[in-house]
Design a protein around this nucleic acid. Sequence first.
DNA 1: TTGACAACCGAAACCGCTTTCGGTTAGCGT
DNA 2: ACGCTAACCGAAAGCGGTTTCGGTTGTCAA
Lengths: 382, 382
Amino acid sequence: MPRAPRRSETMTIARLAKHLGLSEGTVSRALNNYPDIAAKTIDRVRKAADDLGYRPSTTARRLARGVVETIGFVLPARDGHQIDPFLAEILDGLATELALSDWDLLVAAVPDGHDEVEVMDRLVRSGKVGGFVVARTKRQDPRVDYLRKSDIPFVVQGRTEQCDDYAWLDIDNQKAFVDAMDHLVGLGHRKIAFLGGDPDLNYAWQRREGYLSAAKAHGCAIRPGYLHDGIMDEMAARAAVAELLKHPDRPTALLCVTDAVAIGAIHALAHAGISVGSEMSVIGFDGLPMGEAIHPGLTTMSQASYQVGREVGRIVVEQATASTTGPASPLSQILWDATLTIRGSANPPASAPGTNAQPASAPATNAQPASAPATNAKGGIS
Amino acid sequence: MPRAPRRSETMTIARLAKHLGLSEGTVSRALNNYPDIAAKTIDRVRKAADDLGYRPSTTARRLARGVVETIGFVLPARDGHQIDPFLAEILDGLATELALSDWDLLVAAVPDGHDEVEVMDRLVRSGKVGGFVVARTKRQDPRVDYLRKSDIPFVVQGRTEQCDDYAWLDIDNQKAFVDAMDHLVGLGHRKIAFLGGDPDLNYAWQRREGYLSAAKAHGCAIRPGYLHDGIMDEMAARAAVAELLKHPDRPTALLCVTDAVAIGAIHALAHAGISVGSEMSVIGFDGLPMGEAIHPGLTTMSQASYQVGREVGRIVVEQATASTTGPASPLSQILWDATLTIRGSANPPASAPGTNAQPASAPATNAQPASAPATNAKGGIS
DNA sequence: TTGACAACCGAAACCGCTTTCGGTTAGCGT
DNA sequence: ACGCTAACCGAAAGCGGTTTCGGTTGTCAA
C-alpha cells in the first residue's frame, strides 16, 4: 500500500544522488539507461528510487527533453446526447494502453460556444499534448483537417472520406453490413429495411453503403420508405418503426445502424404486438451487453471496441515516439472485421417455406472466430 | 479556423516581447494581471498574443509556479464490465467544468495486475496531477484512505462510510429509495421486492437501506427471497426475476438498484408473459435515456449525472486553488436529491380495488421540479 | 611500467516561464 | 523647476531535470 508523500517529503534527484553518493548527472543517466553507466549502478539507482518513492518530475522532464508524453482526446460536443458506450470503451482501452507505456491521456470537453478544433488548438499551443486520437469521424472532419496540416502525431479511430495521408484503425463497416445482409438473405428475407445514422458520420455512411450494395447484389428492391437516415437513438428508432409498420409492403427484416437503435426498434415492435425474430427479424451493430439480455437476444455485428482503443493507443505512442527519435515510419492503416453474433432476433421470414415459426432459442453463436483482427496495414507517405 | 503551429513557428514569450518592444518580465506580468502593469499595456499584450497564437507553455508555467492545474481521474478496474453510463456522464461534466477553468483532466486506467491506489501514487509522485476526483466509492475505499492522508486536494462523488473529513457531493440515495417505496406503497403495493447491487459499494448500500427502512416504516414484510444483492447487470437481473416469479408469494412490484437492472428485469418479465406496469410494477434509478424508449416507459428516480460532474469539477478546482493560495476553506459536503420520473412501469397492483388494469400511457411526469439541487453544505475541518 | 578504457565526476548550459529587485523615465501637479 | 509616482526596464535567480564535455580514477592486459 503506497503512502502518499507529504509535500515536504518530495524526493528530488539531488536528494537521491546524495543518498547514493553519486552525481546528479549519473543518477539521471542511470534512470535513462545510458550505455556508459554500469548495469550494477543502474540497478542500485533504480532500487533506491523505488525504496524512497522517487519518480522524476514529469514537468521537469518535459521541459528539459522537449517531449510531451500525453495524448489528447477531445470528447464530441454534447448535443443533449450521452456519451455512447462505444466511445466509452474506446477511451477505456486507450487509457489502458497509455498507462502501460507510462503515457498520459488528457480528456477535454468542448464547452458551449466552442468547437472541437478550437479546443485542440488550445491544447497544442500550450504544449499540453504530444499527439491526438480522434474518434467518431465525419466524412469531412475538421479535426482531421487541422491535424493533417500540423506536425502533431495523430491516429484516427475510423476514417474520413479521404484517408491516405494519416494513420487510422477502422472497422470494416461496409463489409459488416454486407455480411449482415448476406445473413438475412440467406435466411430468406427479401424485404429488408435499414435504420441508418447520420450520413455525415463516416461509419454511418459506410454501413449505409454496405446495405445498398448488398441489396443490389442480391437483387432486393429497396422500396421507398425502407431506408431511414438520421436515426441516432432509441426514440428515433421507435418513430421509424411506427412508419415501417404502416408500409403497404411491410419489410420482414430490419438492419439497424447500431445496437441501441436495434434495441429501440425491438421495443417498438414488441409494443405493436409484432413477434421479433418471427414476424420481423432485427440485426444491430456493436455488441452491447444489453443485446444479450433482452428477449429475444439481439443478432448483431460485434466489434471489439476496447481492443480498438488499445490498438489505437499503441499506434499513436509508436508514431509519437518515432517522430521524436527518428525517421518517419510507415503510416498504420488497419481494417478490422466485425463479427456476426447470432442470437434470436433474426430468423427466416414467418411466411418463408419450410419455416420454423418459433424464434431461435439457442445461445448466441459466433459465425466467425471472435475478434482476431485481420490486419491489413498499408505503407504510407514518408 | 485555427491553423496548427509548425514546430519551427512556436511562439515564446521572448519572441512576443520582442514583437511588442517590451521586456519578457513585463509581458509575463501583463498576462498574469499584475497590478503594476497598465491596463492599456495588458490589452495590447493580450491582443498580440491572440493574433500571433501565443499561449504560455503549460510545462514551463508549472515548473516556475509549482502549481499543476490538472485533475486526475482513475477509471475503475475493469472486471469484464463496460464503463457504466453514469460514470461516462460524470466524466463529461467534469471535463466540461475543467475546460471552463482552463484546467485539465487526466484519465488513467488500471492495467491488469495493478490497483487504483498504485496508479494514483504514480501520478502523485511524478507530479502529474494537482488533485483528484474519486467516483463510485466503496464503503471502505482504499483510494479515499490514501488521499485522506495526503496533502492532495480531492473531491468524492459519492461517500464512504466515514465521510466527514473530505469534500464530497452525493445523491441522497437512501431518501431516493424511501421516496420510491413511498410511491409504490401509495399505489397500493405491499409485496415489494428489491434487486440490489454490491453492498460494498456505498451507493448500493444506501439504496438498500432506503428500501429496508421504508418497508419497515410502511409495515411491508420483506419476505425471504424478496431481497437480492449483487445484481450488477441485465443478465443478473434476468436470473433474479426468474427466481421471483417462482416465489410462493410473488411480489407485485420490483424496486431496482439501477435502470440497467430495471430494464433487464422488464425484459425478463415480458419474456415470461408478465404484463409490466400491471401484473408487476418496476422502478429503477438513474434516468437512462433507454428507460424512456422502452414499453412501458420506466418509472425511475433520476439523477443529473452530468451536472454532478460539473459541480464536482467546480469544487475540486476551488479546493485546489484555495490550497495553493490561502487559508483552508470549509469542506463542501453536498447532498442532492434524486427526482421521481413517473412513466408506465409502475401502477397500482392488478388486484387492488378500484384498479385501472391498463398501464399508464401518459408521457413521463416529474413528481418534483427537475433537478434543482437542494444544497446542504456543511462546515468542516479547517 | 604503460596504455587503454570503462565508469564515473563536476560544472555548466539549457528548457520557458515566473518573480524579485534596484533602477530609470516620462508625465503630471504644485 | 522640482518632486512624486506610475509604469516600465534589465538582470538575475529559480523551478527539476537532462545533456554535454573535458577530466579523473581504477582496473586490466600486454
